[in-house]
């Protein structure tokens, strides 16, 4: 099981790339905890998550091939 992850803004900067894949993450809570282990700096950014272009609230089960985006606070305009 593999999910495609997109990183934006400050999170892209912390991770050092705009996309990568992770395997064996069953849901978004597991993903968050994995990311926080891999990139402790992410703990200080209150980011939201979209799955297949829908911003999710709460935990969300992930499936093979899902596109998950890590979205730091928006700052357009």
């Amino acid at each position: 099981m593999e999910i495609n992850i997109l990183a934006f803004g400050q999170i892209e900067e912390i991770i050092g790339k705009d996309s990568f894949t992770l395997s064996d993450v069953r849901d978004t809570e597991a993903l968050k905890s994995k990311l926080s282990d891999l990139y402790p700096e992410m703990n200080r950014i209150p980011y939201s998550i979209s799955v297949n272009k829908n911003i999710i609230n709460g935990n969300h089960t992930l499936e093979n091939g899902d596109e998950v985006a890590l979205l730091p606070p928006f700052s357009g305009g």
Partner: peptide, 11 residues
């Protein structure tokens, strides 16, 4: 709404 809800980031 644009400032709050649209996925744009300013560096």
């Amino acid at each position: 709404r644009v400032k709050k809800e649209v996925a744009v980031w300013g560096k």
